[in-house]
Amino acid sequence: MWSFFHKLGSPPWLYGISGSILRWLLPLTLLALVTGLVWGLLFTAPDFRQGNSYRIIYIHVPAAVVALAGYYVMAIAGAINLIWKMKMADVAMKAAAPIGAALTFIALLTGAIWGKPTWGTWWVWDARITSMLILLFLYLGVVALYEAYDNKEAAGKACAVLSLVGTVNIPIIYKSVDWWYSLHQPASIKFTGESSIDPSMLYPLLLMITAFYALFTCCLLMNMRAELLQREARTNWVRKLALAGGRG
């Protein structure tokens, strides 16, 4: 048990294991993304009121769900770095921020594109949309704050505190449509009780959500590997790796 945690703190071991995970996870992710998109966009029935425009759900919902989950990954990695001074947790936190920002941006953009034909407006300052915009600023804030420091240890600490304070936004985003009157509709997928989305539309959506989780994991591992190589550029294991032609 403990030896696993000690290994997790070792850059060459993490670089190696993430490489072998990516070798099978990356093709599997791409397969799931393509299958989910083709299924959702071409082989499901149109919605009885929205017609074909509802199909943006297959990008919008997975991006938003993983953007929220990714924030917890970033904040928990930040907390582990603060408490146990684990360098690899700092690498994970820094790697998660730009991916989360991209996913949040995709969710906001697809929401605006769907909102124009459905609601009649691109943007409205309701609780769900505004709190999602705050999430984008939190992610971008972590990216910017990290770069603002020359001392990487101080940068890691400051970003970890910012991420931890920002976690309060996640339940607010999730519950905003239930707590306040908003234009955004409540959740269609319910953990308890029957979902208010037809099963024929739900299954490709669940596949897309799984695929986006896998995509987040792949991007996180790839970002972490790039960051590891940069940080450890002067060490023996990276030199050996470079001499071997990058196969590790």
């Binding site: 029935a45 459905t118 609601w119 409540p186 037809d198």
Partner: peptide
């Protein structure tokens, strides 16, 4: 000065909506 449509959380194919309509239930 502005009217927006508020969509609810129900998604279903038109046939399912028709079937529900015929059996005397609304889409909720």
């Amino acid at each position: 000065t502005e009217v927006l449509a508020k969509h609810d959380e129900n998604y279903m194919p038109p046939e399912v909506a028709d079937a529900l309509e015929k059996s005397g239930y609304d889409h909720k």
